[in-house]
């Protein structure tokens, strides 16, 4: 990872702690350079963008049994509104601002379309790893 570290204030916690704002370490290319690359090449497909979410939100955004919310079948406008709020850091978030800050309106809309079209059904089946002794994982339930 490039060591182009900038300190940027992300959230204000002053009301709670009277301490300096919380800082995050930010680096790599700037927002302007991001926009330039977006302009230079065609927009990645909705599937290309959406599939990047599956490691956390499940295949096609259809993981319903974990804390990270499922995206499959999510109302498109709700998705777009939230992603833009995360991007603009309207309120503190666990990780979603850090994820969303690079996306254009068009990319967010494409992802919103993609997830709205997915079936809101748990992707993983209960017996998916049954040859290995089942542990607490499967005790999580809808």
């Amino acid at each position: 990872m490039k060591k182009l570290l900038l300190l940027s204030a992300v959230t204000g916690l002053t009301c709670m702690l009277q301490a300096p704002a919380s800082f995050a370490l930010t680096g790599g290319i700037s927002a302007e350079e991001n926009a330039k690359l977006r302009a230079e090449y065609p927009m990645p497909s909705a599937e290309m963008l959406g599939d990047n979410c599956s490691a956390c939100h499940g295949t096609n955004g259809a993981e319903f049994n974990e804390a990270m919310p499922p995206l499959a079948g999510m109302d498109k406008n709700n998705f777009i509104k939230l992603m833009k709020e995360y991007r603009e850091n309207k309120f503190p978030s666990i990780v979603m601002h850090d994820v969303a800050h690079v996306f254009s309106d068009e990319e967010i809309e494409a992802m919103g379309d993609f997830f709205a079209k997915q079936k809101p059904e748990q992707w993983t089946r209960p017996d998916w790893n049954k040859s290995i002794k089942q542990h607490a994982e499967e005790h999580s339930h809808e």
């Binding site: 990872m1 490039k2 992300v10 959230t11 916690l13 709670m16 702690l17 301490a19 919380s22 800082f23 995050a24 370490l25 930010t26 680096g27 790599g28 290319i29 700037s30 350079e33 991001n34 690359l37 666990i94 990780v95 601002h97 850090d98 800050h101 690079v102």
Partner: peptide, 19 residues
């Protein structure tokens, strides 16, 4: 080309607990 944001040693315990 990469862009990134990573956690800092936050004073806000909610971040580190929830993360």
């Amino acid at each position: 080309e990469e862009s990134y944001i990573m956690s800092d040693p936050t004073k806000n315990p909610f971040y580190r607990h929830i993360r």
